[in-house]
Design a protein around this nucleic acid. Structure first.
Lengths: 198, 198
DNA sequence: GCACTATTATGACAGCTGTCATAGAAAGCC
DNA sequence: GGCTTTCTATGACAGCTGTCATAATAGTGC
């Protein structure tokens, strides 16, 4: 999760995502992003002629792709994949992170939703895209596990909704209780949706 | 939901909540709040010597109490209360609101979580309080419906988590799909938790 | 009438915001 | 070499932020 040897442009997008998920979009200044990325300030206008809005949109897109790609990883690490196991893995990523950083950072997509939905139409669309990039692999994975196509998409929405909300509660309480609770309560429902073995 | 004839102080708290849930905490200026409330600007420092942070905290507290009080209302309006019926009522409030304002406003408590958790400790505590004020009556209602005490609190957390997350997705998609989906998928789980009639 | 408090008015303050214009450096290419 | 494109540096800009000091006003009790 450290700043890699990628180009300055990519580093700025990555840093933006990190700062946004900690402080929100409004409180994240472009000068902060540049400093965090160790990038030249003069490059900002060069790489992001669309200004802050473009940078935020790319950070949101990056986060959505990241979350979607993680799903494949989770599946690989599971001997016999189950819906509840996938959800547990998705949640565990957050409990691990919270244990590491003391509940300092939440989800950048959620932050952009709260801060930009009603003021920046392009960001609103970027957020919707990010949720779709995240939801799609989850839905596919559920299908592969034996959940009927029709319900797979619904359960993916349920899983992501619940996770996002539990992240909010956990951060406010500075306690992962909400996360462990929802994974426990949702497990039987998720596994019960399978009509055949994956 | 219009500005009532209450005192300026109360109007400012209320206006702050409305603006925060639309634009986020960072993008909500104190001058905007004053203007929206039709309140005298000079009164800001008088009523809120703790500055913006105090105003935000009170707005969050107000929202939490509001959400908690609504639970009793929902129960009154139901002939025979069920867990799924309560959840449906909580969600319906949001689908109704979205239909009215075009997905312009989300939850002020979620906004404060995203924007202030890692920067303002007092606001973080106010948010946690708000979630507790909201969760408690839900949990009590579930108990009264026959859900065992131990699970009632967990299910309340699940309901609020899921609702908060679905609000985020719905706003980004400008579509209530996520909300109607989660209420449909969660219904059997909620009702199945009852071990006796309420 | 007075005295006291609660409320409001006004203006100024330093600090930060995103944006842009201009200039310069670097790197690749012919 | 020279030329072109990509990238970086620097500083300035107007606009807004939350906060505060000061003063005037209104209300209330006596």
């Amino acid at each position: 999760m450290t700043v890699s040897e990628r180009g300055p442009r990519e580093r700025m997008v990555f840093s933006a995502a990190q700062l946004i998920r900690r402080d929100g979009v409004g409180a994240t200044g472009l000068r902060d992003v540049v400093a965090h990325a160790g990038a030249p300030r003069g490059s900002l206008g060069h790489y992001f002629p669309g200004g802050k809005e473009q940078l935020v949109n790319e950070a949101v897109g990056w986060a959505g792709r990241y979350a979607g790609d993680r799903v494949a990883r989770f599946l690989e690490e599971m001997r016999e994949p189950t819906p509840s196991g996938l959800f547990a893995a998705m949640v565990r990523q957050w409990t691990d992170e919270f244990r590491g950083d003391g509940f300092a950072s939440g989800c950048p997509v959620a932050a952009a939703t709260v801060d930009c939905t009603s003021s920046a139409e392009s960001t609103r669309a970027a957020v919707a895209d990010a949720f779709a990039c995240w939801s799609r692999p989850v839905s596919r994975a559920l299908s592969a596990m034996g959940v009927p196509e029709a319900r797979a998409a619904s359960l993916a929405t349920l899983m992501i909704s619940t996770l996002e909300g539990a992240i909010l509660i956990a951060r406010s309480e500075q306690d992962s209780r909400a996360l462990t609770t929802v994974v426990r309560e949702l497990a039987p429902l998720l596994d019960g949706a399978r009509t055949r073995d994956g």
